[in-house]
């Protein structure tokens, strides 16, 4: 695997997002993100994008999550990807996908564009909307990020239709949350390790106590599982339209597994930090509150676990799960 583009993207995202964490949407930071071209990364060059692989394109999303940055970067990447699939032009400014109906839209009030999706008999209808401030019913997630409800009805005549099962796009959003969880658990691990190396109790650093070491070991194993879960879904996203089954199953598993990891990681991180981690001044809650939000958003563990369970029970091929599992493995491009 050629890692040069991936490393370059990570490096420029690190430069951009270091020390820019916060609760609120940051317009200046968004301008810098657009300058870097991140929101167009998935689109081919003839559509005005950069033709990056999903692994490369979602790398900045992971870095942004690790730094606790409040931006709809992954949402905009996916909105542009849908526009590309619908043969529509990409948009400038922050954007997100929204399902017709009363669903919460990430960063709604800050968006310039909403790519609205509506299931119709003719396929999945795509409408490009530019809501005004009064079109939003404001709400926040546990981390204080805007999750607003759009009060605009779907357009009578959509801008396009795409040949894509709705579950593929729901899975893409679930994958995005898994990617964010993966970035965040890594940052939580770093925060815990640093804190436990510095903080002394009973005459030695917390990190020298075996009980703490074992807690942090568990945290690390869960963080690694979240990362692999996200990687697995992102790798399958490259062929989400052509081979939707492996992608949807990988994304479902990724969301379930990352959410499970988020639960353990946030719990252990607060335990080893003691009271200080529970205070507003200490930055741990910026990460853990997001973990608690993202594990529920775009389909909780219960939602995607049911998808996996129904699939497993309905399998016909010789009645066995095993060949169906290996059929999801990432394959060499032919």
């Amino acid at each position: 695997m050629d890692d040069s583009t991936y490393s370059m993207v990570i490096e420029s995202a690190e430069k951009l997002f270091s020390d820019r964490g916060g609760k609120d949407f940051d317009p200046a930071l968004w301008a810098a993100v657009e300058e870097a071209g991140f929101p167009l990364a998935l689109l081919s060059e003839d559509r005005g994008g950069y033709g990056l692989s999903a692994r490369e394109a979602f790398a900045p999303v992971r870095v942004a999550a690790a730094h606790g940055v409040a931006l709809p970067l992954g949402e905009t990447l996916l909105a542009n990807w849908v526009l590309g699939a619908a043969d529509l032009d990409p948009i400038e400014g922050p954007a997100a996908l929204a399902w017709d109906g009363k669903a919460a839209v990430p960063f709604g009030r800050f968006l310039k564009t909403v790519v609205q999706l509506c299931e119709t008999d003719a396929g999945l209808a795509v409408s490009v909307l530019h809501p005004r401030a009064e079109d939003w019913q404001p709400a926040l997630n546990y981390a204080g990020e805007a999750r607003d409800t759009l009060t605009l009805a779907a357009q009578a005549k959509p801008d396009a239709h795409i040949a894509c099962a709705p579950v593929v796009l729901r899975a893409a959003m679930a994958m995005l949350r898994a990617v964010q969880i993966a970035g965040t658990t890594d940052a939580v691990a770093a925060m815990c390790i640093n804190y436990c190396n510095e903080r002394e109790q009973f005459g030695r650093p917390l990190s020298k106590h075996q009980a703490i070491q074992h807690q942090l070991a568990v945290l690390a194993t869960q963080g690694c599982a979240a990362a692999v879960a996200a990687d697995m879904a992102v790798a399958a996203f490259d062929r989400a339209l052509e081979q939707s089954d492996p992608f949807v199953l990988s994304a479902a598993a990724a969301k379930v597994r990352a959410a499970e990891a988020a639960t353990t990681v946030s719990s252990i991180s607060h335990q080893v930090h003691g009271a200080i981690g529970f205070s507003e001044e200490y930055p741990l809650h910026r990460l853990t509150c997001r973990l608690w939000s993202w594990r529920d958003e775009d389909g909780s563990e219960a939602h995607w676990a049911k998808h996996l369970a129904d699939w497993a029970v309905s399998l016909q091929s010789g009645g066995h799960l095993w060949p169906a599992l290996t059929a999801c493995d990432l394959r060499e491009a032919t």
Binding site: W304, A305, K306, A312
Partner: peptide, 14 residues
């Protein structure tokens, strides 16, 4: 079914 689906997710990642 949540337990079953979670088990499959863990296996896929492992």
């Amino acid at each position: 079914t949540t337990d079953l689906g979670r088990m499959i997710a863990r296996l896929m990642v492992l």
